[in-house]
Design a protein around this nucleic acid. Structure first.
Ligand SMILES: [Mn+2]
Ligand SMILES: [Mn+2]
Ligand SMILES: [Zn+2]
Ligand SMILES: [Zn+2]
Lengths: 146, 146
DNA sequence: CCATCATCTGCAACTCTGTTGCATTATGAT
DNA sequence: ATCATAATGCAACAGAGTTGCAGATGATGG
C-alpha cells in the first residue's frame, strides 16, 4: 500500500501527518500521472474533504517538494508524485497534455532540455508542455472520422 | 508605422479589417514581447474597447496564426506578434516569465527543442516557459536585500 | 452612393479555478 | 489528559475567460 510511503514522505518533509495528506499522496502515488484538483477531489477517499482544504494541502505539498505541479494549456494545474522520487518529486521532465480527454502524461525519460537565457536573468524553474491527442483518443476518433 | 503591416497581415489572413484588430496588431508589433489581455486593454489606443471584444479578437488572431499565445505559470495568457514573421507568428521558441514584474520575454534565437513522445500520440503544439527574475528586477532587489 | 446582410461590437450574466478570513476542531508535544 | 499550535470547513471573494443576445458596422453588388 502507498500509505507507508506517504507517511514516510510526510515525516521526512517534517510536516504533520493528517488524513487528507496521507490520502492525497497515496492517490498520487497510485495514479502516477498528473491529475487536476477536480480529479483528485472526486476520488473515493477524498470526496468528503473541503475543496479549499484540498487546495491548501496541494500547495503545501508543492512547497515542500513532495509533489510537482504542471500548468496545462487548458489553464488548470495538475499535480503529480512518483514514490520512487526519494528526495521529493521535482518533475524536471516534459509533460504531454491530451486536449481531448484532458489527461496529462509525464515524459520522465528525458530531462527538460537546457535553454540559454540572458546571463543576467535568474532561473527559478521551467515548464515544458506538449499538447495534442493521446493514443486512446486517436483510436476512438477513427470510427467517427469521415 | 505598424498600421500598414497590420492591415497587410489582416488582408493576407482574409479577415475583416476593423479598428480594434488594426490597433491590437499595431500594439503587439510595437511592443514585440508577449503581453496579457490586461496590458493590451490599458494601452491608450485600446482603452475604450470592451474587454470581451478584445478577448474575441485575440482568439481570432490566434486561430488565424497572426499572433502567438503563451500561458504563463501565473495562469494568464500573453499574446505576441512580430511583424517580421511574414507567414504568421508561430512562436515556436521558449519564453521567459519574470515572476516579480510579470513581464514575459521571447527567447527567439533558439527553437523549442525536440522531445520524443510516444509514437502513437499526435502533437499539436508545445509550450516552453522558463520562469524566474529578469535582470531589471534583480537589480532593483539589490538595494533592499539585507 | 446606397441597400443589404453577414459579421462585429458592447453589455450583462455566467463559469471555472483558485484564494482569503475567520471560527471551529484536530494534532502531537508535554 | 492538557494545551498551544496548526489544520479544517464554510462563506465570501477575486481574476481570467466565455456565452447569449440585441444593436452597430463594414464589405459588397447594384
Ligand atoms: Mn511529471
Ligand atoms: Mn514569442
Ligand atoms: Zn486523450
Ligand atoms: Zn522582472
Amino acid at each position: 500500500m502507498s500509505y507507508q510511503k506517504a507517511e514516510e514522505a510526510l515525516r521526512k518533509a517534517d510536516i504533520r501527518i493528517t488524513r487528507i495528506r496521507r490520502e492525497i499522496l497515496a492517490v498520487l502515488y497510485e495514479l502516477g500521472h498528473p491529475v487536476s484538483h477536480g480529479d483528485i477531489s472526486s476520488e473515493e477517499q477524498l470526496r468528503n474533504f473541503d475543496r479549499v482544504t484540498l487546495y491548501r494541502n496541494l500547495n503545501l505539498l508543492l512547497e515542500k517538494g513532495l509533489v510537482h505541479g504542471v500548468l496545462g494549456t487548458d489553464g488548470s494545474w495538475r499535480y503529480c508524485a512518483h514514490p520512487k522520487d526519494v528526495e521529493g518529486c521535482p518533475g524536471r521532465h516534459p509533460h504531454f497534455l491530451c486536449m481531448e480527454c484532458g489527461r496529462m502524461f509525464c515524459l520522465p525519460d528525458q530531462a527538460i532540455p537546457f535553454v540559454e537565457v540572458p546571463s543576467d536573468f535568474e532561473v527559478a524553474g521551467k515548464q515544458f508542455v506538449i499538447y495534442g491527442r493521446c493514443a486512446e483518443c486517436r483510436n476512438k476518433g477513427k470510427d467517427t472520422e469521415k
